[in-house]
Simulated assay, not measured.
Amino acid sequence: MAKTATKKLVLAGLFLALGLVLPFLTGQVPALGNRLLPMHIPVLLCGFVCGWPYGLAVGFITPLFRSLLFGMPPLFPMAAAMAFELAAYGGATGILYRIFPKRPGYVYGTLLLAMLGGRIVWGGASLFLLGLAGAPFTWQLFLAGAFLNALPGIAIQLLLIPVLVLALQKVPGGKGLL
């Protein structure tokens, strides 16, 4: 039991570190980062590999910590809304991956539902936070931010994450991770 908890804690730390470092691939260009969503990948993987509590925690901490360390994304309202969004991703992948029947496509089903849920949470958090600031958050802003602008990142997630999860299931010792 303690060995498993230690392994999950170390892996969660690795996913947190990846969430801090991967956005450097977009060159700190917010428009590119908003399209490729590099912070989302390690958080989604953390939920799959470590389970919902770790995925939720890593998801919540990553954008806030990155904002405080590197100034990107801006803490308010972007990193604050992303904290709730990524927490939902990590928590949802961890829960859904464990409860879905292990049939063909269950990894995609888990991923799609988590991505949809996280985007809805982001919309709610953005609505609340921007409301506090007296700024409007319209349906058009939600659709653009959650889906239209994010299409390249969504495609990367749908291609990369299931391949990585399925590969981890096949490696010796991988079943112990998943």
Rank of each mutant, 00 (worst) to 15 (best):
F65T: 14
L151K: 14
P63N: 12
L18W: 04
G19M: 08
A57G: 11
L64A: 10
R103L: 14
P30L: 15
F84R: 00
L16F: 15
P42N: 07
G176T: 11
Y97P: 01
Q140A: 01
I161K: 05
L148V: 15
L18P: 01
G91M: 12
G27F: 12
L158Q: 09
L22A: 15
T110Q: 03
G94L: 07
F142R: 01
I156S: 11
T93M: 13
L130W: 06
R119I: 01
A79P: 08
L75R: 10
L151V: 15
I41C: 05
L22H: 13
F128C: 03
R119W: 02
L132P: 03
F48E: 05
M82V: 03
L86E: 06
G109S: 06
P30D: 11
L16H: 09
G71Q: 10
A31L: 13
L44R: 03
G71R: 08
V58L: 07
G174A: 13
S126A: 15
R103M: 11
M82S: 11
L143R: 02
G117E: 05
A155I: 13
R98H: 07
G90E: 12
P38T: 06
R35D: 01
F137T: 02
H40C: 04
Q140W: 00
G90T: 09
V121W: 01
L16K: 07
G91C: 06
A92P: 10
P63L: 12
T6E: 06
C46T: 03
G94S: 04
P136M: 01
N149P: 00
P101L: 00
I95C: 02
T110F: 04
L64I: 15
P63T: 12
L68R: 05
P101H: 00
Y106S: 09
P152Y: 05
A83I: 06
L37Y: 11
C46E: 08
A80R: 03
L22T: 14
